[in-house]
């Protein structure tokens, strides 16, 4: 009945989706996009521009990794931008010397994790919709940040963050290396670990998960904590990239990260998608934004394109049955 040779051939990952695009669709699209941009504007493929794009991918990519966990768990995390800005503000809140790097890192991570805990608690224990829960924590955190900075943060980012955020090693940005490490670690966690399997089962259907003895609430809370922690790291990286921190560092990342994830095939209805797809989504987004600038188009087009992309990607992936 079961053809053994066929069965052998299917030793793939456990997630198999009926509506999944060919795994090559996203990379192909990215390559096509890069090729077209390069043809239209040769400057696009210049070393400095590529290096610049790589520098920009990293902070977004790091946020997308966390967002992936949350979206696969049927949620979404709007508080990431607020966590990023707060982490960035913290980065300048000290002497600006490398000696403070550890304290900054710990405090920023603490804030990210605490935000994630609150988000997760609201979503699981209080049944608040993820959208509202994370929107509310975003606002509250913003309030605390404003109160802390009294409007305008000042101070410098430690040189180490500057290095990681904006320097390159033989053309490869340090922050890109950080992204790759984080992507591999969390990619393995999501795709290969027991916890990752529990994430997929819970995101696919929380009731099923509970009846399988999985602590769905705990899994969900951890998902939000991962998102918060990674957003904090992304905020520090971004502070190193921009150098001068204001209260709005990371603004727009909440939307961008969701757009990237959805474009990368992480369905907003939960249970589907993976980190690699999300990262391709992030790369596509950065390339599009970059091309808009390079083609001499008004920068506002970026926002419009973002809006169109989010609706069209959703129309493609998450059509409702109604």
């Amino acid at each position: 009945m079961v053809d053994v040779s066929q069965a052998r051939a299917t030793e793939g990952p456990a997630i198999s989706m009926k509506s999944r695009l060919s795994p090559y669709a996203l990379p192909m699209f990215l390559i096509a996009l890069i090729a077209v941009s390069g043809i239209v504007s040769p400057a696009f493929l210049s070393t400095s521009n590529i290096s610049n794009m790589l520098l920009q991918v990293a902070p977004l990519g790091i946020v997308v990794i966390g967002q992936a966990f949350v979206i696969i768990l049927r949620g979404l995390d709007l508080s990431v931008s607020s966590v990023m800005a707060t982490a960035a503000v913290i980065a300048t809140g000290f002497s600006g010397q490398n000696s403070d790097v550890l304290s900054i890192l710990l405090i920023a991570l603490g804030i990210g994790i605490a935000t994630g805990l609150v988000n997760g608690w609201l979503v699981t224990k209080r049944s608040v919709s993820p959208f509202l829960a994370t929107l509310a924590t975003m606002i509250v955190l913003q309030g605390f940040r404003f109160a802390y900075t009294q409007g305008a943060p000042s101070g410098n980012v430690p040189p180490l963050f500057r290095l990681i955020g904006s320097a390159t090693w033989h053309g490869v940005p340090y922050n890109m290396m950080l992204l790759v490490v984080l992507a591999i670690v969390f990619g393995v966690v999501l795709a290969k670990s027991r916890f990752g399997r529990e994430v997929y089962i819970t995101g696919g259907n929380p009731t099923t998960a509970r009846l399988l003895g999985i602590n769905a609430d705990r899994v969900t809370i951890i998902g939000y904590v991962i998102s918060g922690a990674l957003a904090a790291i992304a905020g520090l990286v971004l502070s190193g990239y921009v150098g001068i921190v204001d209260n709005w560092v990371g603004r727009g990342f909440e939307l961008d990260s969701i757009v990237a994830a959805v474009m990368g095939g992480i369905s907003l209805s939960g249970g589907q998608g993976g980190i690699l797809g999300g990262l391709f989504g992030a790369a596509i987004l950065v390339v599009v934004f970059n091309a808009v600038l390079l083609f001499g188009l008004p920068v506002q087009l970026q926002i419009i394109i973002k809006g169109l992309v989010i609706v069209l990607a959703a129309a493609f992936y998450v059509r409702r049955r109604i």
Binding site: F131, L255, L268, Q300, L301, Q302, I303, I304, I305, K306, G307, L308, V309, I310, V311, A314, A315, V318, R319, R320, R321, I322
Partner: peptide
């Protein structure tokens, strides 16, 4: 599009802001 209003209006929001 049969897309949830959350997404549609979010997208519209970005387009209008642009």
């Amino acid at each position: 599009l049969r897309v949830h209003p959350l997404i549609v209006t979010l997208g519209m929001s970005a387009v209008l802001q642009g």
